[in-house]
Amino acid sequence: MTDTPLSAPGAGVGRSGRVALWLRGAGGRIVPVLTVIAALIALWYVACIPMNAHQSVLLAERSGAEVTPAAASERRNMGGIALSLRNPGPALSAAFAQDRPVLPAPHQVAVELWDSTAGMRPTSKRSLIFHGWITLSATLAGFAVGTALGILLAVGIVHSRVMDMSVMPWAIVSQTIPIIAIAPMIIVVLYSVGVQGLLPKAVISAYLSFFPVVVGMVKGLRSPDAMQLDLLRTYGATGGQTFWKLRLPASLPYLFASLKIGVAASLIGAIVGELPTGAVRGLGARLLAGSYYGQTVQIWSALFAAAILAAVLVAIIAGIERMLLRRMGLAR
């Protein structure tokens, strides 16, 4: 037989060549990403000037500088851009260092993020690690429940026509209700039966995360084509064998795509669950407290903490996905 298996990419390249290849690949990915981030940060800095212009000009006036127009009532009705153009000096010098800016500068957010994570004990009530953990625990509990529920529903939907007709429409309807409307009701109802703390938030997380799992798993479990199913029929395979040997493995790539959406939705659910109770702990509580007291820097840093947490969760799932699919021979 003259056939040989197709060689893996880069198989003929030596070790040093492979490193160079990797660097080129990584550089090819990192450079565009960094460019976009740099552009966004630059845009953010520029936006700080008009957004904070009213405050900047007021500060300059209080310290005795000449500002135009001189009357505060006149300035109030002006746009931020117009005000910055007429007072370029004060607008530029004071835009990035205010205590309570309308839009804090990136470095202010970064400093606050650093101070409230690495800068203090993780048990402190002001530590974002403390608040992040509160939110994360509810997120993970809700995500686990939501994923399990989603998979069970999908299995039921694929195997039972009755469930397909009855469950799927309700699953879709459940996601058309604004979470901000239903979250307080879940919290209140559960509180009235004596359930509070982590559980109500986890319920909201599960409520948001089961849906992408149902949709993805239904599609995944139905992904084997008629020929694959006929093949198993010719072996006289049972429904259980068809499920474990064909449908389930075929659905895994779909499941992981759903899990990535689901875990991000879980985090949002947990944060939203913290808002209506006026909770004192959790990233949602930080956002809420920040908006009560006009602490925009605190809001933004909590927001970034939530975004970083979501990114880490998605990255962990992507890592598990890569590992598992490679072991299954599905990733090349």
Binding site: M227, D230, L231, T234, L246, P249, A250, M328, G329
Partner: peptide, 15 residues
């Protein structure tokens, strides 16, 4: 009988 289909239809996740 054994049945051979038009496409090989091998499971990609199995060797």
């Amino acid at each position: 009988y054994g049945y051979v289909f038009q496409a090989a239809g091998l499971y990609p996740w199995r060797t």
